[in-house]
Design a protein around this nucleic acid. Structure first.
Lengths: 140, 140
DNA sequence: GTCATATAGTTGTATGTGCAACTATGTGGC
DNA sequence: GCCACATAGTTGCACATACAACTATATGAC
């Protein structure tokens, strides 16, 4: 009965998608958000937590906890950033670098799967639309 | 860096949308999922928890807890269903019926807002696409 | 130089959600 | 009629996530 509702459908989609991604990243013993955070740190070493939060559209406090758990597992480290004594920079460890390729490959494989299921063009344009609306809402 | 990723964008959208819906239903002191569950019970009195779960794409255990809290607030009641001793039927109370119209109107207002922001046709087709993919994933 | 204010990160707490295991009830084979 | 199995609902637990409040540091006004 909520077929046309953006709230209802965007949440249902997110849950369904999360289930699939959770499964795929289970081999690394990482949840999807942990895996994505780590991938981001691997791609852009030295970012600050606040920047990681912005790139992932997550709150700073959520990032703090994910960093805690990844640091405890020795997949990354936090180091005081040069000038500003409040800031920390986040770097991947060698252990993380060792699985860098595979983490990204898993992401690519999932995208591949989704394209096969939905159709490449349909998926691309849907994701673009989703992104556009999400950014509109974040601005407003 | 995850611009094209379905997982990343669908979750980011869901969080952004949820924020807006949360705000709108705060006047009733209901979270969006509680409000939607109650709206469903109002629209189709007598459904079983398992049916509510299916219609809302939520797990039975999540529905149990939402029903607990709505029942405690005297917005609905659970009654043993006729034939099968395991089943319960869920009915709205008069207190819930008193705000039925307003709950639905709030939903309509939110859809209206989204249409104004995104464009009616774009929103409709995006929601349809989201729905289609979500159902594909649930089947697979 | 001090004080008000802003910002980075963290922590306490609350909520939504699912999975796995549980209890209670039904059903079909024999 | 009993037993294996299925199903409805619940509960224990774990996790993702946010908001508000906190600490520590920076910055600008004077």
């Amino acid at each position: 009965m909520f077929e046309e509702c953006l709230y209802f459908n965007s949440n249902a989609l997110a849950r369904a998608v999360t289930k699939i991604w959770t499964d795929a990243y289970k081999v690394y013993d990482l949840s999807p958000p942990h895996a994505f955070l780590l991938r981001l740190v691997l791609a852009k070493p030295g970012l600050l937590p606040r920047e990681l939060a912005a790139e992932l559209s997550l709150s700073r406090s959520t990032i703090t906890r994910f960093l805690d758990s990844l640091e405890k597992r020795e997949l990354l480290t936090r180091k005081p950033a040069g000038t500003d004594g409040r800031e920390l920079q986040v770097f991947p460890t060698e252990q993380a670098q060792a699985i860098h390729q595979q983490l990204d490959a898993t992401g690519a494989e999932l995208t591949h799967q989704m394209r096969a299921l939905v159709g490449t063009d349909d998926l691309t344009s849907m994701v673009a639309d989703i992104r556009k609306v999400q950014m509109m809402l974040d601005d407003s």
